[in-house]
Computed example of a mutant assay.
Amino acid sequence: MEHGGTAGGADKRALRRELLGARSGLTAAGVREAGRALAERALELPELAAGRTVAAYVSVGGEPSTLPLLEALRARGVRVLLPALLPDNDLDWGEYTGPDSLEQIRHGGKMALFEPSGPRLGPDAVTGADVVLLPGLAVDAHGMRLGRGGGSYDRVLARLEGAGARPLLVVLLYDTEVVPRVPAEAHDRPVHAVVTPSGVLRFPVT
């Protein structure tokens, strides 16, 4: 969740505007190509290649396309969980069984999201994942991730911590979004790795 009254919150908002502006200049072909490269690079992570259950997400807008990775995981027999946004910005989860298991849902005035059309498994379903793939706008050398500010994944990370679950936390980004420093606040938690179209970078987090 954003704490807009802090200097860190203001710094985050400024960095978000800059990064979202850069993404808005990307072509649809560039987004798709990044997705294909990301799928190849992501499967170089042994934890992901060998995972039984992976919590992922369906990319929207200028985010690197995740559909090639979702299909690659499904082809390997991995159980893939996808989020469904709840009214309070928390996330429920459902299973991905192919492109026809997605439905486009618009939440109020927000961007339309692709969510699983099957049964909801509850917010705690994510605690059974071996790997959690997180969206973001940037990550720094310490593994601190910059999200969009809605707080949904802050809740996911807090839920994992509260349950004692320790999945591999991976953010999917473009190469230019690995930055020297992301403004951090007290509630922020680092990720373990970032995957970009050019490779995988792990962070020394405990």
Rank of each mutant, 00 (worst) to 15 (best):
Glu177Gln: 15
Gly51His: 04
Met1Ile: 06
Leu69Arg: 05
Leu70Arg: 08
Ala29Lys: 06
Ala22Gln: 13
Glu40Pro: 00
Leu26Lys: 11
Leu19Gly: 05
Ala29Ser: 13
Ala56Thr: 10
Gly98Lys: 09
Leu20Thr: 11
Leu102Thr: 10
Leu169Glu: 03
Gly122Ser: 09
Leu45Cys: 05
Ser117Ile: 02
Leu102Glu: 13
Asp124Ile: 00
Gly136Val: 06
Leu134Tyr: 08
Leu67Gln: 12
Glu47Ile: 00
Glu95Lys: 07
Leu91Tyr: 04
Ala39Trp: 04
Gly147Thr: 09
Val78Ile: 01
Gly4Trp: 03
Leu20Ile: 12
Glu71Gly: 02
Asp124His: 13
Ala55Asn: 08
Val178Ile: 05
Gly150Tyr: 07
Tyr174Glu: 02
Ile105Trp: 08
His107Arg: 09
Arg159Ile: 04
Phe114Asn: 10
Gly77Leu: 06
Glu2Thr: 13
Glu185Gly: 14
Glu177Cys: 02
Glu63Gly: 09
Ala29Thr: 12
Thr53Ser: 02
Ala75Glu: 15
Leu91Cys: 05
Leu133Val: 06
Leu160Ala: 03
Ala42Thr: 10
Asp188His: 13
Gln104Glu: 15
Ala138Asp: 03
Val78Ser: 02
Val132Gly: 01
Gly143Cys: 07
Asp140His: 10
Leu43Thr: 07
Ala84Phe: 10
Ala42Arg: 11
Glu185Met: 14
Gly143Arg: 12
Leu160Asp: 01
Leu201Phe: 04
Pro135Ala: 07
Gly94Met: 08
Arg41Asn: 00
Val126Leu: 02
Ala186Trp: 12
Lys110His: 13
Leu168Arg: 12
Leu201Met: 10
Asp188Ala: 12
Leu169Trp: 05
Ser117His: 04
Glu2Ala: 14
Ala42Met: 11
Glu95Thr: 14
Val60Ile: 15
Val205Pro: 08
Asp188Met: 14
Val194Cys: 11
Lys110Asn: 10
Ala7Leu: 14
Gly151Asp: 05
Glu185Val: 11
Leu168Gly: 03
Val178Phe: 11
Pro167Ser: 03
Asp154Val: 03
Ala72Ser: 11
Leu201Ser: 12
Gly136Ile: 10
Pro180Trp: 14
His142Met: 01
Asp140Pro: 05
Thr176Leu: 13
Gly9Arg: 13
Leu146Tyr: 03
Asp188Lys: 13
Leu20Ser: 05
Ser117Asp: 13
Val195Ile: 04
Gly9Met: 08
Arg166His: 14
Ala193Met: 06
Arg36His: 14
Arg13His: 06
Arg23Ala: 07
Ser65Gln: 14
Val126Ile: 12
Ala112Thr: 09
Arg148His: 15
Leu45Ser: 05
Gly108Pro: 10
Leu160Lys: 02
Ala75Gly: 13
Asp124Tyr: 04
Arg166Val: 11
Arg74Ile: 02
Ala184Tyr: 02
Ala158Thr: 10
Ala50Tyr: 00
Met1Ser: 13
Ala138Lys: 11
